[in-house]
Amino acid sequence: MVIAVTTAYDVAAQVRDPELPVLTLADLGVLRDVTEAPGGRVSVTITPTYSGCPALDEMGADLRRSLLAAGYSAVEVRTSLSPAWTTDWISEDGLRKLREAGIAPPSRLGPKVAGPVPLNLVPPSARVACPRCGSFRTSELSRFGSTACKALRRCLDCAEPFEHVKEI
């Protein structure tokens, strides 16, 4: 017989991002640590996607609510700034879920390159595929979308506009 053991991590990992509800906080890579202490006390560490991300407070409130509802007695939500969040922390599953929701996922950035931050005088010709038809013939409409983490693009083949989680 297999007994399912639900840990505080499992509960926290299921909480959804308030602005990208197709993703859980674990998918998004903002859930950094969940520690259980005696007496049902839980400490959760999350990291902001952007310094001014207004969803951070909401994430904390949702985590508190979910863990208290799961029977934990006290929940402390901590914020970690370093190392800074990168879109590379979005899980493979998360990338798939974004694509299925019509949002182009970010490309993988890979390891950081040393040296000065490069200047881009023209919008980078990132190969962003249209999440609807798969065409790579897409162009940027706006560098800032409905949330800080997204840009707005359009597909030149199926003509649909779509959002793109930009690489940082």
Binding site: P48, Y50, S51, G52, P54, F144, S146
Partner: peptide
């Protein structure tokens, strides 16, 4: 409009 507000928001967070 959205871009300048987003930039302002980043700076506010910092």
């Amino acid at each position: 409009d959205v871009a300048l507000a987003n930039i302002a928001l980043d700076l506010l967070g910092q």
